[in-house]
Simulated assay, not measured.
Amino acid sequence: MAILIKTPAEIEKMRISGIALRKVHNALAPTVAPGVSTMDLEKVAVAKIAELGGIAAFKGYHGFPAALCTSINQEVVHGMPNAKRILKDGDIISIDCGVILDGFYSDAAVTYAVGTASPSTRKLLDTTLASLEAAILECQVGGRLGDIGAAVQEMCEGAGLGVVRDFVGHGIGRSMHEDPQVPNFGTRGKGPRLKAGMVLAIEPMINAGKPEVKVLPDGWTAVTVDGSYSAHFEHTVAITKDGPQVLTR
């Protein structure tokens, strides 16, 4: 495992990429509503990325056809935008997006409740987001990679939720996926030591039911085996001597 250490100048470039990505998410947020298609969301993202002078990181990546991953309800990750997929009241949708700016990648995801959320749905969303924030706090020089996953696992399993094992976070920089893998489960005090200059995409993928997932015949869309809803939140985080810096905040 070769974990690439970024210089302060490189982290600053990644921050600029992350700010652009946040502007994309900010443009998408008010668009999420009943009656909107996932292709409508894709068009908003494509236009905003172009306006900002960026490149859609996902489009064409291993053949993926879109700038966004739009995953609804029981879809965990990698759902593909489609003009026929119309959001309904009570749905949830994970919108995952990446931007390349000046050669550096940023990656972030948000799960939205569409219209009215049930108490169980709200618990899923709130707990998943809180687990991401807990994981970010573990991004301290001298800590261990296992501390990050343990923070997610402890919070989510403690709330009776299922932590997905099949998909994990990752290092990020001049490439979308770099070492190390960043699981959402783990043992505190285990794994590589965290060093200043590491940049990680931390992304809890949490199911309301059991953790098992399967990939649909399209080769991309991952869904929960038991049909339960799934939430996904993600930030790109730099580890620095002054503590974690969330580059996509």
Rank of each mutant, 00 (worst) to 15 (best):
M1E: 06
A2S: 13
L4A: 09
I5S: 10
T7E: 14
E10V: 03
I11C: 13
M14H: 00
R15M: 01
R15Y: 02
V24H: 01
L28F: 10
A29D: 15
P30C: 00
T31F: 11
S37D: 03
T38H: 02
L41W: 00
A47C: 15
A47D: 12
G53D: 06
A57F: 05
A57K: 07
A57Q: 07
F58Q: 06
G60D: 15
G63C: 06
P65V: 04
P65D: 08
L68W: 01
S71A: 02
S71K: 02
N73V: 06
N73E: 11
Q74Y: 13
V76H: 05
H78N: 06
G79C: 05
G79W: 05
A83C: 03
D89M: 13
G90H: 07
D91G: 07
S94K: 04
S94E: 02
D102H: 08
G103R: 04
F104R: 03
Y105D: 07
S106W: 01
A108V: 03
A108I: 00
A109D: 03
T111Y: 01
T111S: 00
S118F: 03
P119D: 14
T121H: 02
R122S: 14
G142S: 09
G146M: 09
A150H: 11
A150F: 08
E154F: 12
A159Q: 12
L161S: 01
R165T: 15
R165M: 14
R165K: 13
D166E: 15
G169P: 06
G173T: 12
Q181L: 12
G191V: 00
V199T: 03
V199K: 05
P204R: 09
M205D: 11
I206T: 09
A208H: 08
A208F: 10
K210H: 11
P211L: 01
V215I: 15
L216M: 14
L216Y: 13
T221S: 06
V223S: 04
T224A: 12
S228G: 09
S228R: 03
H235T: 10
T240N: 15
K241R: 12
K241E: 13
D242S: 15
